[in-house]
Design a protein around this nucleic acid. Structure first.
Length: 101
DNA sequence: CATATGACCGCCA
DNA sequence: GTGGCGGCCATAT
């Protein structure tokens, strides 16, 4: 991954406000990426200092290895979780959140 | 170059 | 509602 793409992805995640969430695909689109996988890749390698817990799968679920921590953090921000999935209808950020600040 | 492996996604049965 | 499958794309071997 070249540095520019890497940083755009980090910037998109960083711009997600507390109490809101976005899917990996949303972040990819926001950062001009064509692959949601790459977003997960970046977060796994260089996401420790980002609000990575606000990034979810397209169905509102989360990967098994981070599930506990993610849910704990989200609940602390008032994000509603039902049947193991975040209620995207209530907390999903509208596309363009990065530019239209 | 070929295969495998993921913090993934959309479609279809 | 669930799984399966193909597509996706960077990295590792």
């Amino acid at each position: 991954m070249d540095e520019a793409r890497h940083e755009r992805i980090r910037a998109a995640v960083l711009a997600i406000p507390e109490g809101w969430v976005a899917t990996y695909g949303d972040v990819a689109a926001e950062a001009g990426e064509r692959s949601a996988r790459v977003v997960g890749k970046v977060l796994s390698e260089d996401g420790a200092d980002l609000p990575w817990h606000r990034v979810l799968r397209a169905d509102g679920s989360s990967a098994p290895h981070i599930l506990d921590e993610q849910h704990a953090r989200l609940r602390a921000e008032g994000v509603e979780i039902r049947d193991g999935r975040v209620v995207l209808a209530h907390h999903r950020l509208a596309s363009g959140w990065l530019s239209r600040r």
